[in-house]
Lab assay of single mutants.
Amino acid sequence: VGDQVLEIVPSNEEQIKNLLQLEAQEHLQLDFWKSPTTPGETAHVRVPFVNVQAVKVFLESQGIAYSIMIED
């Protein structure tokens, strides 16, 4: 199991704000291929294997929908 690319769908401005804060966490080494800008629009982010669980827990705790787009 390696890195994953998640497709994330924020449903409101609050969730977009939370994702932008997540993007700013440099220690997570997230690679946003497509940043969140509009509710209902997908964002794509590559998550290093060591941080996959932490990111998924965060998304679930914020009620942000996501799916695994690419499993490496």
Rank of each mutant, 00 (worst) to 15 (best):
E41T: 07
T42V: 14
I64G: 00
E13H: 12
Q62R: 14
E60T: 06
D3W: 14
N51G: 04
E71G: 09
I70F: 14
L20A: 07
L22V: 03
V45I: 10
L19Y: 01
R46W: 08
G63R: 05
E71I: 05
E23M: 15
D3Q: 08
F58D: 01
I70E: 10
Q62M: 14
L6N: 00
V47G: 01
E23I: 14
A43M: 13
D31C: 15
L59N: 00
A43Y: 15
V55E: 00
T38A: 13
V9I: 11
P48I: 04
V47F: 01
Q21Y: 14
E41H: 05
I70T: 11
N18A: 15
T37W: 09
D3R: 06
E23N: 10
I70K: 09
K34G: 05
V50C: 13
A65N: 10
E14N: 07
E23R: 15
S35P: 15
P10V: 06
N12P: 00
L6Q: 01
A24P: 03
A43T: 13
H44T: 15
T42W: 04
V57N: 12
D72H: 13
V52R: 03
L28K: 03
E26R: 12
H27A: 09
L30V: 10
V9A: 06
F32R: 02
G2Q: 10
D3Y: 15
L20R: 12
D72A: 12
L28I: 07
L30T: 03
V57A: 12
A24V: 07
G2K: 05
I16W: 05
N12A: 02
A43E: 01
E13P: 08
N18L: 15
G40V: 02
L59G: 00
V55S: 00
V9E: 04
D31A: 10
V52D: 02
E14S: 08
Q62E: 07
D72F: 15
M69Y: 12
N12I: 02
L59I: 02
I8F: 04
S11Y: 09
F58K: 02
T38P: 02
N51M: 08
L59K: 00
T42I: 13
A43I: 15
I8C: 05
A65G: 07
E26T: 14
Q15D: 08
T38E: 09
S35K: 14
E26M: 12
S67E: 08
M69T: 06
V47M: 02
L59R: 00
E7G: 05
E26I: 12
Q29K: 14
G2D: 07
L6G: 00
P39G: 04
Q21K: 15
S35M: 14
I68T: 07
A65W: 14
A43W: 15
V45Q: 01
V50R: 07
Q62V: 12
Q53H: 12
N12V: 01
E7I: 13
D31H: 15
V47D: 00
L22K: 03
E71T: 10
V52M: 10
P48D: 05
Q29Y: 09
D31S: 11
L19C: 03
I68L: 09
E60P: 00
F32M: 04
D3G: 14
E7A: 14
F49L: 13
N18Q: 14
I16S: 03
Q62Y: 14
R46I: 08
V5S: 05
W33S: 12
Q21G: 08
L59E: 00
S61R: 08
P48Q: 06
A43S: 09
H27S: 11
K17W: 10
V57Q: 14
L19A: 01
L20M: 11
L6E: 00
L30R: 01
T42N: 05
P39F: 04
V52H: 04
W33G: 05
Q53T: 08
Q53Y: 08
W33K: 10
F58C: 03
S11N: 09
I64M: 06
K56P: 00
L6P: 01
A65K: 14
D72W: 15
D72M: 14
E71R: 04
K34C: 12
V1D: 12
K34W: 10
G63V: 02
I8R: 00
T37R: 07
K56Q: 06
L28E: 02
Y66W: 07
L19I: 08
Q21C: 11
G2T: 10
P36T: 06
E60V: 05
E71M: 07
E26S: 12
Q25D: 12
Q21H: 12
A24N: 08
Q62H: 14
